[in-house]
């Protein structure tokens, strides 16, 4: 077994949810989500239908901070704009698997990307949710991922609901004109699942070496803990090879897992490598 980092296990677990049913729109370059979709496309779901930026039906791409957007257009079969994507994918119920992250997330499947503190005069003004307010409700599967599983992020109730899954159970979702499908939370400790309204998230699996009690202690909302909690599947040699050598050779996914001081030097290192590769073509 090759040693691996937890962000690699998170990528393989999110990738496992990606299938060939429906369309996924990725907005800006979010490395973990992008890596998961690319891994799925290179393995079990080659026909997963992806939109990146305005590139519709894109080919799998190599990840980089400066090249992801350009790469998305290179193998794409169509170009749309934001409003066409909204009307043709989100609102017409073609959305497949949506992966999001947020500053706060709660046991109802609500996200906060708006504010910490009062809305009109916040302590921290967060970026805003872009389309997430509507989209996490519309998609068949909602995946929320968090690199640092703690009770400040996974809270009992978010301070402000930017958006929410709204209806969770299959029947309630069908009645509301939505595609049935679960909420799946993938963190650095565990996988949590919710597929009924009025029921708590349950621990689907813990990552190797993690005790279910540790997950409970680090989660701000109630959890259903089954008597036997399975261990999350580890990345295979083939998955690690694809991730490290083909999908993400610059190491963009790891960036989001670094703490304050490490981040800037690491980012500079990646950008330096991206610059050198491009510069070699023109010098």
């Amino acid at each position: 077994m090759t040693a691996y980092d937890v962000h690699e296990l998170m990528v393989t677990r999110v990738a496992a949810e990606v299938d060939e049913d429906g369309v996924t729109v990725m907005g800006s370059f979010t490395p973990l989500a992008y890596a998961s979709y690319m891994l799925a496309k290179l393995t079990h779901a080659p026909n997963a239908y992806l939109v990146g930026f305005d590139a519709v039906g894109m080919a799998p791409i190599q990840l980089s901070f400066t090249g992801a957007e350009a790469a998305a257009y290179k193998g794409a079969v169509c170009r749309w704009g934001m409003l066409t994507e909204i009307n043709s994918i989100h609102l017409s119920n073609h959305g497949g698997v949506e992966a999001v992250s947020s500053a706060q997330f709660d046991g109802d499947g609500a996200i906060n990307l708006s504010t910490i503190g009062p809305f009109d005069k916040p302590k921290v003004r967060l970026p805003g949710g872009a389309g997430a307010a509507e989209v996490i409700k519309m998609y068949r599967k909602m995946i929320a991922y968090f690199g640092n599983h703690n009770s400040r992020t996974l809270v009992d109730k978010v301070e402000f609901v930017t958006g929410t899954r709204w209806k969770v159970g299959a029947e309630a979702r069908r009645k509301a004109g939505l595609q049935p499908g679960p909420i799946i939370v993938v963190t650095n400790l565990a996988v949590l699942v919710k597929d009924e309204d009025g029921e708590p998230f349950r621990i689907e699996s813990v990552h190797p070496g993690v005790d279910p009690q540790m997950v409970v202690e680090n989660t701000g909302f109630a959890l259903d803990v089954p008597s036997e909690v399975p261990t999350t599947a580890e990345p295979t040699e083939q998955q690690l090879e694809l991730l490290r050598n083909r999908i993400d050779p610059f190491g963009t996914v790891k960036f989001d897992f670094l703490s304050g001081k490490e981040r800037l030097p690491y980012l500079k290192g990646i950008l330096d490598a991206e610059w050198k590769r491009a510069e070699a073509r023109v010098r």
């Binding site: 690319m38 496309k41 290179l42 393995t43 080659p46 080919a59 799998p60 791409i61 190599q62 980089s64 400066t66 090249g67 992801a68 957007e69 350009a70 790469a71 290179k74 193998g75 083939q238 694809l242 083909r246 999908i247 991206e274 610059w275 590769r277 491009a278 510069e279 073509r281 023109v282």
Partner: peptide, 14 residues
């Protein structure tokens, strides 16, 4: 050149 250098991946699907 960063646009030119950006790569798509041939299907692995091993």
């Amino acid at each position: 050149a960063l646009v030119d250098a950006a790569e798509t991946l041939e299907g692995a699907n091993l």
